[in-house]
Design a binder for these strands. Sequence first.
DNA 1: CTGTTAGCGCTTTCAA
DNA 2: TTGAAAGCGCTAACAG
Lengths: 335, 335
Amino acid sequence: MTVSPRSGATTISQVAARAGVSPATVSRVMNGRFLGAADVADRVRAVAAELSYAPNHLARSLALGQTSAIAFVVPDLANPAFQAMLSSLSKAAARDGYRVLVADSAESASDEPLLVQEIRRRSDALVLCAPRMTDAELSGLADSLRPLVLINRATPAVGAPSLSIDYAAGIGDLARHLHDAGHRRFAYIAGPASSSSNRHRLAGLDAFQREVDDVRVEVIDGGATSEDGVAAAGAVRGSGATAALAFNDLVAIGLLDGLARLGVRVPDDVSVTGFDDIPFARYTSPTLTTLSVPHDELGTGAWDRLRALVVGEEVAPDAVYRPRLEVRGSTSTSR
Amino acid sequence: MTVSPRSGATTISQVAARAGVSPATVSRVMNGRFLGAADVADRVRAVAAELSYAPNHLARSLALGQTSAIAFVVPDLANPAFQAMLSSLSKAAARDGYRVLVADSAESASDEPLLVQEIRRRSDALVLCAPRMTDAELSGLADSLRPLVLINRATPAVGAPSLSIDYAAGIGDLARHLHDAGHRRFAYIAGPASSSSNRHRLAGLDAFQREVDDVRVEVIDGGATSEDGVAAAGAVRGSGATAALAFNDLVAIGLLDGLARLGVRVPDDVSVTGFDDIPFARYTSPTLTTLSVPHDELGTGAWDRLRALVVGEEVAPDAVYRPRLEVRGSTSTSR
DNA sequence: CTGTTAGCGCTTTCAA
DNA sequence: TTGAAAGCGCTAACAG
């Protein structure tokens, strides 16, 4: 016979005792698997309500071997692009009774693998966005992370469903747009050096350069935040470029601000572009020409695949979204 | 003797068996409570590494009676103001080994109480931002939610630490600023009707009106999103007001956009203000005059109090932040 | 139909 | 210094 539990909460045995049935019966009633007489069920429910009993989620999880929680790890929770993904992922998962546990790997750049494994063990599955991890690291870790869905890492070797963005094609579209407008000297404000999506953008730019053969691309050190954009403004002005392609919208917005402070007019003196199309890109001054990335679809698509993985259904094929060019006010014809 | 576990993961007994010790010893070694011979500890660690053993977090939580996770519930995960809080809360909690479980109550407006109780039971404590819940509902729920920290709800009756914003004072400052600039006809684009913070803003406006006695405030239906702001543009124009105070920055940004489409110039024809000072408020066109709210401090302050509550330390007093007026380009002197 | 029993994997007294 | 055993609260075979 069980006595009072450590915490104040009512336990299943207390309800059982009070209702004069076994814990198993209470369990069945609570989970809708009860097949006996209606009055027994009613009594159990009445007692449960009376004692305001609620099953201990932890104990239930341990017995069932599942937590009904998934983990979501991103490099920076403060970036609107990841926030949009979190918002849609959380809503989608909630519809199926799952909650999401979040973590920001920026805090612990070095031991990201540990962070990721730790949070994965607290949940049933993981949605990982780890642009800075090498393919080798990721492959080594993958088995300990499954069920796993990757965002922005189409790494066939890893064998995990993935949703990604064709950064190379996207930036190519952007370059084409600028080229058509007469620009020939580009400055690319790079993202974090270790970022794989930054490498894809560089590759896209290289390809474009080889294709048209009459543009020059100067690469300027940047980063992933607005501050990095502000900091790059001087270098952009000094580069002589007429078009500045920022790593992402955050950087572009900072750059817009930095250039304004330097008295450089956008788009008259230099055109500026972003990447992501965060909700505010349409409200900047001037409005930002950028590449629209379907963050909501990344979030819902990630849940869709994770769910399929968990329940053993067939998983939808990997998705590669091509960003959509969104021409706004920050780009114009080169003089 | 235990056999192979349900899932593929190594268990403590497997490590114990392999190392020729008891599970208790492995447990002690893994948790740094082992006082025996060093070679025993080394052997255990070696075996653990060999089998890549990692303690099952769920089982550990059940035995310990704590999850090392806290829940964070907000009305809308897509709002930058809550995202900023989440970001700082998550970082602060992570420093103490806690993870955060998120939920967005927008999905399930009606059964918010259930949502909140459910997610609370999956964690050790809760940070709740529930502007639409009535004081009565909140009081009734509070005991089932403790340890609990409230954001934007300084409800003494509830008896939970709180961090809040003095909305009334803030909007009073804003009104004063506009009044000083010569405005006498205001339009307030209201937030959700059931929102307590909306009521505080209204109260602040009322107080201001009584104080100066020469302004007229028309209340226009709005909401909490950019779309609501866009939708309110026509009514703002039709109101004859020279200054439009939006419920929050999101609404203000939408309003800016809506007014621009109607050909109404800001701030020449009408001044516009927001509330929150989300990161992008400084980048809108024109830049947005708003009230700066320390979202990061709300997040870290919430964790600070929650932690104290959990470990039984003395909890810092309730915080009431007075928003700081941030005058930018969207407001100007009335003609 | 319902109860008994044996776990889920870990921690922790208690005893040796 | 170490191990046996009980227990955290719930679920699910298996009996009856």
